[in-house]
Design a protein around this nucleic acid. Structure first.
Length: 810
RNA sequence: ACCCGGAUGGCGAAAUCGGUAGACGCGAGGGACUUAAAAUCCCUGGACCGCAAGGUCGUGUGGGUUCGAGUCCCACUCCGGGUACCA
């Protein structure tokens, strides 16, 4: 008796590096950028390369995107899937500060570590086209993008408030302020006024909103953008002020309530406050203004307690002719509308609260279905505008709110008191950062010529290496401490001039990176015209919904501007966008402080990258995320082990089972449909089910039965599939072998289990021909004693759903 | 407060149109193989009553529509995310 040779087990540690090397050698993942006939641009949101290394959340996102990309390739598309690094910005700089490193030295190390981890994950990325936003080859063109906006009159400079942490001696982004204190040291944040560069995104509000109608995006993402843009229809109304020529203009969405406007409120910063304030009130008003100014932006917005001061002035309500007092209060914001409101305490909760506090008159001008004109308002304002109708409003009494909005606006407009307007919440995008780690804004200030854009031929304006990159108490950029850098001759007249020392927001780096990928190796243009028109707009964009608003909105804006400037011929960058879900672990959010952060390296080491990928996709619906449970990964690994064994032991000289073949065809259809719809978890379940059927009863498996399964699993477990494909005798890549086809005839059932109910309760099931008639089914049911015993009395009704059920109502 | 999601076995979850609730996987229990264990393979797994056949209940709560509801409608509770004095 000879010792049988041990069968080869599935060994990811051996085959994964083998295929990574082979893909690199053969250029398997390279897209034919200049002559692809069926281009498909698969984009995933590029990561910020943290020093901690790749997060499973990243890998979850990338794997899902990669499966979609590989699937499209199998379907015959020429897929371009690039990746890069969002390496510039405040995250990277703060981390460098914390560990006492320099971002210019630290970032390349982080990028290298990410690169290693990403390559290991087996993504079908065309690494030739990698971008790194912190490299001069990239940010040269970020600066170019700034200049295009500047040329279009969409970049301008104005003074604006910023958050300042006196302890960290730095400007903070709004996201870095929590409840009025610095997220890092807990110190109360102050407000400073600094000159800032803005992009006029508000000019695109309407277009950004309207295009959402036809974009193929996740509905949640669309609604987040819609809310952020915040379109509201209303009117601007002007109020005469006693003793003054200046009028107060307010914005309101409820012009119908004008008869109930019993006072006006201006924002404390409103420019007319000083004009209107009477001498008697001046001290109180100034005191209030000073107190407001000292408060930081965030604290002001988080405290809901109403405060305010009377200016001493009164205005005339154009509808009633009554004199109404003018107050200032910090619940009115200068940055929205006109910075002034007409207060209608009867029908606005904030005004109601304010009026109660300061004993201002509250008048009912809208009544609900159960109210009369003189029904008292009670404890709260009445804000139901769907059911309300006007009262105490002269000629408009009895009109429903919606109708009255138009009627009152028209009436006021005719009298010269106002005009209908549309307002947007969206405000201009402040892109200045008084920081070091970002692209210097390409502007030069000259005493003679004023603000001069850096000529494109002089780009990039390189970020110099400076050891003292730390922000200081002055509130100006670290670059402003380096005269040798910022003193330059004026590009126009040659006189001594100085550079802008602020850098631009990280979000600008990422607002155009998708345009760069196809042309990443070009140093003469930001993006090549031919390649751009071949590959863009992006066919599939997958990313986190945390970027639903800022990144996606800024990208759309920049794309629109590029179109208007004539650089591209499309205005929406992402034809299809899907948001993936979030991964939690053992029921809890992952965080460093909890110590439950997953290190992908450890899992890939133990189980293999393919099993890890597949588990991430199996643990829950991709668009909802899921719970990472350490024990769960063994299930997908066992599936791969068994599939491996079936491929290894498959033969060509055993009978093919018709039932197995039918199941394989059904699985091809289901996995195709589910993968296209990002239902990866159910696609994997279908493959498992199919394999279980294939192997059931310890039968000998025919090669033709298992071969399609290898193709189906390829997008999910690419190294594994390549090795199996080779074992089955192929020399090329499985990704060039196409997607298996199914025979629709194989999907049709000739016999079905018909469920029989009596009065809606399941009483049995019958194995019957699929095309059985109701009468035949009925006869079959009555012949079954277990069913017939429930059919007592007269049959009132029979519901028959072919192929599904028969319900007998007695 | 407002706007989105969500709630299904011990656990992660599945269920195109309203039509067998719990696919697939984890864990658990039992068995085979083994001197033994691991690995692997097979079987059983919603709850309750029952020896069984069988029956009753069951998708967060309370109502409703329907022959039939996890799925549709109304009211509510809890959880997650986003926005937050936006007039």
């Amino acid at each position: 008796m000879s010792e049988p040779t041990l069968p080869t087990p599935y060994a990811p540690a051996a085959i994964e590096p083998k295929w990574r090397d082979r893909w690199a050698d053969r250029g398997t993942n390279h897209a034919a950028l200049d002559h692809a006939a069926r281009p498909f641009y698969a984009l995933m949101m590029f990561p910020y390369p943290s020093a901690e290394g790749l997060h499973v959340g990243n890998l979850f996102a990338f794997t899902g995107s990669d499966i979609s990309a590989r699937f499209h390739r199998l379907l015959g598309y020429n897929v371009f899937q690039p990746l890069g690094y969002d390496a510039f910005g405040i995250h990277s700089e703060n981390y460098a500060l914390r560990i006492g490193a320099h971002p210019m030295e630290l970032t390349p190390k982080n990028v290298a570590n990410f690169q290693r981890q990403l390559e290991r994950a087996g993504l079908m990325v065309d690494w030739r086209q990698k971008v790194d936003t912190s490299r001069p080859e990239y940010y040269k063109w970020t600066q170019w993008v700034f200049l295009q906006l500047y040329r279009q009159g969409l970049a301008y400079k104005k003074a604006a408030a910023v958050n300042w942490c006196p302890s960290c001696k730095t400007v903070l982004a709004n996201e870095q302020v929590e409840g009025g204190t610095c997220e890092r040291c807990g110190t109360a944040v102050e407000q400073r006024f600094l000159e800032q560069w803005f992009f006029r995104i508000s000019a695109y509000a309407e277009r950004l909103l309207n295009n959402l109608d036809w974009l193929d995006w996740s509905p949640i993402t669309k609604s987040a953008q819609k809310n952020w843009i915040g379109r509201s229809e209303g009117a601007q109304l002007s109020f005469r002020v006693g003793g003054h020529d200046e009028m107060v203009t307010v914005f309101t969405t409820r012009p119908d309530t004008i008869f109930g406007a019993t006072y006006l409120v201006l924002a404390p910063e409103h420019p007319l406050v000083a004009t209107f304030t009477t001498d008697a009130q001046r001290e109180a008003v100034q005191g209030y203004q000073d107190a407001t100014k000292k408060q930081d932006v965030i604290a002001r917005k988080s405290s809901k307690d109403k405060t305010g001061v009377f200016t001493g002035a009164t205005a005339v309500n154009p509808a009633t002719g009554a004199n109404i007092p003018i107050w200032i209060a910090d619940y009115v914001l200068m940055e929205y509308g006109t910075g002034a409101i007409m207060a209608v305490p009867g029908h606005d909760e904030r005004d109601f609260e304010f009026a109660q506090l300061f004993n201002l008159p509250i008048v009912r001008v809208v009544a609900g279905p159960d109210d009369a004109a003189d029904t008292p308002l009670g404890e709260t304002a009445y804000t139901d505008d769907a059911q309300g109708r006007l009262v105490n409003s002269g000629a408009f009494d009895g009109q429903p709110v919606a109708e009255a909005k138009t009627a009152v606006t028209n009436w006021l407009a005719a009298g010269g008191h106002g005009t209908p307007v549309t307002n947007y919440r969206l405000h201009d995008w402040c892109i200045s950062r008084q920081r070091y780690w970002g692209p210097p804004i390409p502007i030069i200030y000259c005493d003679a010529c004023g603000t001069v854009p850096v000529p494109e031929s002089q780009l990039p304006v390189e970020l110099p290496f400076i050891p003292d990159f730390k922000p200081d108490d002055s509130g100006i950029s670290p670059l402003a401490r380096h005269e040798e850098w910022f003193r330059v001759p004026c590009p126009t007249c040659g006189a001594p001039a100085r550079r802008e020392t602020d850098v631009s927001d990280t979000f600008l780096d990422s607002a155009w990176y998708f345009l760069r990928y196809p042309s990443a190796t070009r140093d003469d243009v930001a993006f090549d015209a031919d390649r751009t028109s071949r590959w863009l707009p992006v066919d599939s964009y997958i990313g986190g919904n945390e970027h639903a608003v800022l990144h996606l909105l800024y990208s759309r804006f920049v794309t629109m501007v590029m179109k208007d400037a004539g650089h591209i011929d499309f205005e929406e960058p992402f034809t299809r966008f899907r948001a993936h879900g979030m991964i939690i672990r053992e029921g809890a959010k992952m965080s460093k402080s909890k110590g439950n952060v997953i290190n992908p390296d450890v899992y890939m080491e133990e189980w293999g990258a393919d099993a890890f990928r597949m588990y991430l996709m199996f643990l829950g619906p991709y668009e909802e995320g899921g719970d990472f449970r350490d024990q769960g990964i063994s299930g997908v690994r066992r599936f791969l082990d068994r599939l491996w064994a079936s491929v290894r032991d498959a033969r060509a000289d055993v009978p093919i089972d018709a039932g197995v073949v039918r199941q394989v065809h059904r699985t091809i259809k289901k996995v195709g449909d589910d993968t296209a719809g990002l239902s990866y978890n159910t696609a994997i379940a279908a493959m498992m089910e199919c394999l279980n059927h294939l192997r059931s009863g310890d039968r000998a498996v025919h090669r033709a039965e298992v071969l399609p399964l290898v193709q189906l699993v390829a997008a999910y477990a690419p190294h594994f599939a390549e090795e199996c494909w080779e074992m089955l005798g192929h020399t090329g890549s499985v990704f060039d072998a196409g997607w298996p086809t199914f025979d629709p005839a194989m999907l049709v059932d000739h016999e079905v289990d018909l469920v029989v109910q009596v009065n809606g309760k399941v009483r049995g099931k019958l194995r019957l021909a699929a095309d059985v008639t109701q009468d035949a089914a009925m006869a079959g049911a009555m012949a079954d004693a277990g069913i017939a015993k429930f059919v007592v009395g007269e049959i009132k009704k029979v519901i028959f759903v072919p192929k599904r059920l028969l319900n007998i109502v007695v």
